[in-house]
Every structure is written in C-alpha cells, then in structure tokens.
Design a binder for these strands. Structure first.
Length: 950
RNA sequence: AGGACUAUAGCUCAGUUGGUUAGAGCGCUACCUUGACAUGGUAGAGGUCAGCAGUUCGAAUCUGCUUAGUCCUACCA
C-alpha cells in the first residue's frame, strides 16, 4: 500500500467491479427495504444537493443491504417537461436551426429524444463516481414505455372517477413559454412599482354623494381597464351605496359596466372602488363569479393587446355578442407599452388623478422569469382537495412520519388549503393528454383513439387528440409505484411497496412529495383495501449553501460540482466552468474575480469518501448547511489517517493468521479496545436508525482516530517491538488490531464505501475471510458481554497517567526526547495494581525511564505535579524544570479548582437545593467538592514546597 | 399579514427527558522528522451559550418579550 492516500486511484476501478458483479441488485431476504431516488432531470447534472441526498440514501441502502435485507434503491430520471423543452429550444437557436414551431411537433420531439440520448449520461456517470449503489438494471425514466402506460392509466381512472375535469379557468400564464403553470411554479418577488388613480365617469348623469360625476379607482395595472367588467364597492360603504346597480363608462371603449357591491372590497384602502377585470386578475375573477359578470380577454398569448376583445359569460362559454374591438392605437402593444400608452391617454382626457409609488408583489414564472399573466384558458384540473384527505390522515395517524418533525406543520397547513391543481401544459415534451374531441367539441378520454371509439361507441367521425401535455409532476407523482411495474401487480410492487424512506429537500416538497402522497394513496391499496402510503418516513434534508450562507446558483457563480471536490480541478478550468453559459453574460467578470480570490489554486483532490463523510457529518436535521471547504480537507486527512493506520496494521499482520487470538487471555489493552468497539457499534447503529448521520459520523471519527489510531496502535508497539513480549501476547495483539480494523471497516462502509472496501480486501486475508466484497458482509452487531468495565478502568487510568506526564512535558517545554523519571505518591492499592499491569506501556508512551511508587513515609523530591484522581504523578525537577514556570502552572490549576469549589460550595450551601434536588445529584456534587478540595490541597503543598526550595 | 426555523469558540457546527468542568473539526500558539501517517504527533489558549424578563433548588436546554437573520405560505385593487 502507498504511504499516502490517493483516492482517485483506488476509487476509479472499484465501482466498476461492484456493478459488474451485480451486487447492487436486490437479493432475496426476509425483510424488504426500498428507497426511490428523487428522479433528477434527465438532461441535468448533479449539484451538491444531489450529492448530499444521494450520500444519505446510499448510506441507508448499504446499511440495509449489510443487515441482510432485500434491498432496492430504485434509480431513474425525470423528463422535466418545461426545463428540457427550454434547453432544447435554446440549442436550436444556438445551432441556427429552425425554431420549434416551424419544425413541427414530431420533429421537435425527436430532437428532444436526441438531446436526452446525448446528455442523459452525465448524471449516471456522476452517480457512479459518488459510489451510489443503485439498481441500474431496473433504471426508469418518466417517459419510458411502462411509465407512460402508468400515467395514462392514472389519468383515465381519475377522469372516470370525476377527479379530473376540464374547464375554462383563469390560470397562471407564462407569456414566454405560452403555457399554463401551476401556482407552485409562480414565484413572488417584491418590487417597486406604481399605483395610478383615475376617473371612471358615471353613466346616465349619476353623481356621487359628494357631487362628482365620476368614481375614482386605483390600480397597478391600468392597461387592463379595457377588459373591465365592473367597478366593485363594499356593500356597506355609505359613499357609494346609492350607486350600486348603476353604471360607469369604460374610457376608450365606451362600454357601460355595472357598479357591484362585494365584500372583498376594503373600504379603507384607496378610494374604496375597485376596477374589476375577471379575465386578468384572480381576485376579480372571484368577484366576477359571484356577480355572474362577463369576462373580457384583451391579451394575446404573448400578452399583447388584441384587435378584438374575446368575451365569455361567467360560466366560461364564449359569447360573441359581447365581443368588442379594441382601440386601434393600443392594438399590438405588449402589456408594458400598453400601460404607458393608456396612462398617457388617460392624462390627455383629464381622467388621470395621480400616481404614487407602490411596493408590490410581482408573480413571475419560475422558468421564464417573466411576470405571469392571469389568462382565461381551457385547462385540465385535478380535484386536489379530495385526494389530499387520505394523505392528511396518514400523517395524523403516524403512518407517515416526517424527519424532522416540524415539517408536519407546513404539510398540514398546505394540504388543508389546497386549490385544484392545473395539470395541462401547452408544451410538446411530455405525456400527451389521452383525450380526444370530435368536431362538435365533445370530449372522450381513453388509452388511444381506437379504444376511445370503442369505449364511447363512436362511429368513424373525425377525432383529434388534445394538444396539451401533462405537468411533469403529474407523472412523477406516480414514481413510487409506477417504477415497480404498476398498473401490473408485479412481484416487485408487492415486495418493495410501500417504500421505507424518501430522502429529499424541502424545495420540491409541495411539487412532488405532497402529490406523490395523494396519488399513491389513491391508487395503491393493501389487501384490506386500506390506502398504502408511498413511504413510511420522509427525511427532509437542508439546503447546501456556500460558505457565506448564499444559495448555490449558476448566476451567483458559487456552485461547486461535487465531482470537482472529489477529483480536483485547476483554477482556469473552474473559472471557465463558472463563467460560461451564463444567462447574464455580464456577470462573468465578477464571478471570475470572486472565484480566483476564493480558490487561488483551484480545488484539490479529496476523494469521494471524504466528500461523503463531510456531507454526513453535516447532516444534522432541520438545518441548512453552509459548505466549508476546510471540513472537507479535514476529512480527507481523516481518510489518510485510516489509510495509514491500515498500513501499520497490515505490516504487522499480513504474514500471519489473525483470525483467532492465542490460548492466552487477552491483555487489558486488547479487552479495552474491544469493549470500546462494541460501544461504538451500538452507538453508530442507533444513530443511523435515528437518521442522525452527523452523530454516526462523529462517533466513527472519534473511535477510529482517538481510540484506535491514537491509543490502540501506539499501545500495540511495545508488544510488537519489545523482545520481552511472548508470542502469545503478540498473536493476541495482532488478532485485536486486525479484528477491530475489519469490524470498523464494516461499520464505516455505508458512509465511506471506497476506502473501506479497498483496505478490507487486504485485511480480510489476515482474518481468514474469503468473501468477495465488503458491501455484502454482515453489518457489525454489538456483544454486551464484551463491554468490559474493568478493562476500561485500567486503560483509562493508564491513559491519564501518560497524559499527566505529557502534560507536564508540554507545559514546561521539556523535550519529548528526554526520558524522565516519575514518582507516584498517594497511590491506592488499585493504582498500584494498574501500575503493575501497565508499567511498560507508561514507560514507552510517556518516555519515562523509571516509575517509582513512594510510600507515605518517603520524602518526594522537588517535582512538577499532576493529579490522577487522588494520586500524584511527580516528575522530579532536578535538571530540567523551571521553578517559576511550574509554580505558574500549579497556580493556574489551583485557580481553576478554586472556581469549581466556590460554585459547588454555593450549591451545597443552598438549603433549597439540598432539600429539592435528587439524591444522586447531591451526592455527585459532594463528591465533586471533596475531590476538588483534596486536589487543591495537594497542589498547594507542591506549590509551597517550591517556595521553600527557593 | 400569518407561520416555521436559526442565533453556542475566530470560522463551520454538535449539545437527546432541565443537573457537563459547555464539546468536535478547521484555524491559532508552543514544542517535536518518536520505526503507519507532516494530508503527521504532543500539549495549550480561546465561550456572559444574541439580549431582557420569568418558571425552577438548578436553564445553553422550558415560557414570554426584544433584536438580527433565513425560509415558507398568502396577499389590497
């Protein structure tokens, strides 16, 4: 083995071997365990968030597999309708190819499939590099044949059950992509804008109570006045009560529209008069519905003023008799130009009263970034309220559990107040809606045209399919069961559904998780007909941010590709990666500067295991993670530590059979580390079960570094190197070194698969094992009988004595190469016993040439002092110790003890404390006080001794 | 507007049903090429647990308020 840890060399070939042997595939077992991967966008690439979530899933899966369960980690990708279509359209423009519309639907879709083929491999490559042990044999795609069938089946069933309907509704319209989007795909941003006030002339000579012949309305969107259907006032507003039922005249178009009374209006806000545009505002739509107002659409699909306004009755039926032409001077203007022009025209007609600055929330499409236009269109909807009920119940009863728990609140709040879900998208890439229309506009839903004709007993009249596709999230909502073969009742479905845990970020909680719950519980029932949950536990990870707590994003230029942390990347390449293909190229310079400052030498190689270990170490629940490069480095060093520890162990065990100890009993050191190992196994297993990957990692780190490397390896040296040791003792030590290492490799494997497997392949030989791979070995279980208090006491004592001497050495600057004599004073019979057993080890590890126990009658030489319990460890001062330094050191310790004594005395002097606190607590305090007092006394004596010697 | 979360060492974070001498990693200081490891070893310094008030014998931990920050949901034209 190489003396330094070179992750790339060992990681690159291992995965291939695992995969070739098909060790990721489920293996029959009594108990099943499954995780469905949140399917990443097929054409995307993995970012740190994925690396994080995948690491956690892989750790859980590897653990379950080692625990002998029939384990499936279902892999797959999502077709990501709008995102993918957007990328492909951009590519067409870049390659000077005809745009989508000219190309036509079929040709375009072919282009998308081509793109999927050429770019879809990125993710799978990354996942392999991350060591993700997914079952590649059953990889799925949300648009593969079987999945498409599942989507159709689900849609048709829901339609037949009345849970999907079609209707003309006001929806969020993306004016760039010309499609409806769901509420969730709209992001609200606060922006500075204006509020205009203008006059609406009253018709028929009416006047307000204060004598005006007009009403004043306030609006942030004056351009929509062309499509107004009413002016609304509050029913109790005395100012306008007499005008309800009367009319105003819409400027420029001359239509008369009614004044209606509606509770929605806040009389305190503005003038108390609201212009009402049901076809272009969600609140106005509601008002319109309540008052059966007609609706006027004045915008094209790109939000430009139409030639003729389209008119609809309140129920959504077109009503051509109400249609009207729009003023020529406005026709064709986009909404912002129209706004300017109309405000100017209002001013010219003396209708404008004023304009104020106004802070408003602007809804924008999350993909296009453009302001959403509420638009009246025919769309498909899912009755979300009905589907949500079983999911809510399942969380209430605990059938589904959130980790961390607080997400329940968010879940309930959202689920209990659901609007119907708009699932149709005016895109081409996606699952086309299985609905057909005849020339009269009658609707037929079925698998395909032929089955529709049969189902509805249609003759051969012409039918045409709905042009729309389904929201991507409609298909991914079926992910947990459609991947397992549904609608067929496959064995896989029976074995692996419900799944055990879903690991995902809260960013797609509503998009995906909530909808998956709804769909799954509707379609999947157990043998008693009870709805099945999609997963028993939902583990929600935090977001990975950069070191300043900023969200990682391409436009901020602060993303780091997980693979670059693994294999490293040069500065120039990193700069290039970050500053090209930006949506806003002008940011490139700033990003370059920032990157050069932050990574003057690029990013070094750290290896997958270090990355994974860092991610799990940071995975405490319910908290975002600010990425810290330093921690990654620290953990790479930890890997190096493990690597070198293994080199040491192997160098002493390679040529021996270490599968068994000798016939002689194990030494206390040997028993101690085995005892600690068993405690470690218990802790790590429990922490995994609680999803506390941070604690599991920390426990492993502590054991491997502080117990195994720092002590066990050092304590083995006297045995392995000294001529005095017997063959049996050496055999025992070799056995323990090798056995503990082998066990801890199994224990750490779920988090650090590569380094553990690599080392294990060597260690297994010394343990007489012939198994092929660590990943299929049994996960360690602890043995209570091996937890040994006696051995622990002895070795903890030994460690304290060694540390005491080192402490004196360190604080008094005595060279580590100087061998020191040590005297022990106040040694109890137990101390003396421990000394007899451990003396050689003290001499060796503390570099002590002689340990002498002084009886009470013997005078100790002038010494530096450290206490181990009541026993004094003395290092004589003759020759190497500075008296003043030692006095200062003693004083420091005495001061500390004084503070402790003070605090404890106060506590014990408090009658209420003594009266109320449990006896154990009081006893503990008393003990504390006694030992602190005696410790202080001892140190004071030493202090005085030095004084007198002066 | 409503809700949630966060505030602990210079930095990134642990701290479980209230009882600790409040921990880890990184950084810092000193010493050290000791036969696995300088991607190292040994030792050390460093904290009014955001602030205020309360409950309690006892609060980093429970309650209320304040401040700062993050996020979610909704939204007044």
């Amino acid at each position: 083995m190489d003396s330094t840890y070179k992750p790339h060399e060992l990681e690159s070939t291992l995965y291939e071997n695992w995969e070739r042997n098909n060790w990721f595939a489920p293996k029959k077992g009594d108990e099943a365990y499954s995780i469905m991967i949140p399917p990443p966008n097929v054409t995307g690439s993995l970012h740190m968030g994925h690396a994080f979530q995948h690491t956690i899933q892989d750790a859980l899966i590897r653990l379950a597999r080692m625990q002998g369960k029939e384990t499936l980690w279902q892999v797959g990708t999502d077709h990501a309708g709008i995102a993918t279509q957007m990328v492909v359209e951009r590519n067409l423009a870049r390659d000077n190819l005809p745009p989508r519309i000219e190309m036509g639907r079929e040709a375009f879709i072919e282009k998308v499939w081509d793109w999927k083929k050429s770019s879809g491999g990125t993710i799978t490559k990354q996942m392999r590099r991350l060591g993700n042990s997914v079952d590649w044999e059953t990889e799925r795609f949300t648009m593969d044949e079987g999945f498409t069938e599942a989507v159709q089946t689900a849609f048709i069933k829901l339609y037949d059950e009345g849970l999907i309907y079609r209707g003309k509704r006001l929806v969020n319209w993306d004016v760039k992509f010309h499609t409806a989007i769901s509420d969730l795909e709209v992001e609200n941003h606060e922006e500075k804008g204006f509020m205009w006030e203008f006059k609406y002339p009253l018709a028929d000579g009416e006047t307000t109570s204060d004598g005006n012949d007009y009403l004043v309305v306030a609006t942030t969107r004056p351009e929509t006045l062309l499509g107004d259907s009413a002016v609304a006032v509050h029913p109790d507003d005395e100012r306008y009560k007499n005008l309800v039922g009367k009319f105003v005249v819409v400027p420029f178009v001359g239509r008369q529209i009614p004044i209606v009374a509606d509770h929605h209006v806040d009389p305190e806000f503005g003038t108390g008069c609201v212009k009402t545009t049901p076809a272009h505002d969600f609140n106005d739509y509601q008002i319109g519905q309540r008052h059966k107002l007609p609706m006027f659409n004045i915008f094209s699909k790109s939000a430009e003023i139409l030639v003729m306004a389209e008119a609809y009755d309140a129920d959504g039926k077109a009503n051509e008799s109400l249609a009207f032409s729009l003023p020529e001077s406005f026709v064709g203007l986009d909404r912002y130009q129209a706004r300017k022009t109309i405000v100017k025209a209002l001013e010219e007609q003396n209708l404008l009263i004023g304009v104020k600055d106004h802070l408003l929330q602007v809804p924008k499409g999350d993909r296009s970034g453009l302001v959403i236009e509420p638009m009246l269109t025919d769309q498909w909807f899912v009755d979300a309220k009905t589907l949500a009920k079983p999911a809510i119940e399942a969380v209430e009863t605990g059938d589904m559990e959130f980790v961390p728990k607080q997400y329940e609140n968010m879940f309930f709040a959202w689920m209990r107040d659901l609007q119907d879900w708009c699932i149709s998208r005016q895109l081409w890439w996606g699952h086309r809606i299985p609905a057909w229309y005849d020339d009269e506009g009658n609707l037929y839903v079925g698998d395909d045209e032929a089955s529709v004709r049969e189902k509805y007993e249609l003759d051969d009249k012409p039918l045409h399919q709905d042009e729309d596709v389904l929201d991507t999230w409609f298909s991914s909502a079926l992910w947990t069961f459609a991947t397992l073969g549904w609608p067929e009742q496959t064995d896989r479905l029976k074995t692996f559904h419900p799944t055990d845990v879903l690991v995902t970020g809260c960013d797609i909680f509503f998009f995906w998780v909530a909808r998956m719950m709804m769909m799954t519980m509707h379609f999947m029932k157990d043998e008693h007909g009870k709805p099945q949950v999609p997963f028993k536990t939902i583990y929600i990870t935090g977001l990975i941010r950069d070191e300043h707590g900023q969200k990682m994003s391409k436009s901020k230029g602060n993303v780091i590709d997980p693979l670059d942390m693994i294999d490293g990347i040069g500065l120039e390449e990193l700069v290039a990666k970050r500053s090209t293909n930006l949506m806003q190229p002008k940011l490139a310079q700033k990003i370059e500067k920032q990157t050069r400052k932050e990574f003057p030498e690029g990013i070094g190689e750290h290896g997958t295991d270090a990355l994974r270990f860092t991610l799990t170490s940071l995975a405490s629940t319910g908290r975002d993670i600010n990425w810290d490069m330093k921690r990654l480095e620290g953990n790479r060093n930890f890997c190096n530590k493990l690597w070198n520890a293994a080199r040491y162990v192997l160098s002493h065990t390679e040529d021996h059979d270490c599968s068994k100890p000798s016939d002689e009993p194990l030494s206390l050191v040997d028993q101690w580390i085995i005892s600690r190992l068993n405690q470690c196994i218990t802790d790590v297993t429990e922490q995994f079960a609680r999803y506390r990957f941070d604690l599991a990692s920390q426990t492993l780190f502590e054991f491997i570094k502080n117990q195994y490397c720092d002590w066990t390896l050092e304590l083995s040296k006297p045995v392995l190197f000294d001529d005095n040791a017997t063959d049996s003792q050496r055999q025992n030590t070799r056995y323990v070194l090798s056995h503990v290492l082998e066990t801890v490799l199994r224990l750490a494997h779920p988090i650090m698969p590569f380094i553990t497997e690599t080392i294990w392949q060597k260690v297994k030989v010394t343990q007489g094992l012939s198994d092929d791979t660590l990943m299929l070995m049994a996960y360690p279980t602890s043995d209570e009988l091996l937890v040994n208090a006696n051995a622990e006491a002895s070795i903890e004592w030994l460690k304290s004595v060694i540390v005491a001497v080192r402490n004196i050495r360190g604080e008094l600057n005595i060279s580590p190469s100087t061998a020191l004599p040590v005297f022990l004073v106040n040694a109890s019979s137990q101390d003396e016993m421990f000394l007899r057993i451990n003396q050689r080890l003290i001499e060796r590890l503390a570099k002590v040439d002689e340990v002498t126990v002084l009886s009470p009658s013997e005078e100790a030489p002038l010494s530096a002092t450290q206490l181990v319990g009541d026993m004094k460890v003395l290092v004589p001062m003759a020759g190497f110790i500075d008296l003043e330094k030692e006095q200062a050191r003693l004083q420091k310790h005495i001061d500390k003890l004084d503070k402790d004594i003070q605090r404890v005395e106060n506590k014990l002097g408090n009658e209420k404390f003594v009266a109320n606190a449990p006896k154990e607590v009081i006893d503990k305090e008393k003990e504390k006080l006694a030992s602190a007092l005696s410790a202080k006394a001892e140190l004071a004596i030493q202090f005085d001794k030095i004084n007198n010697a002066d």
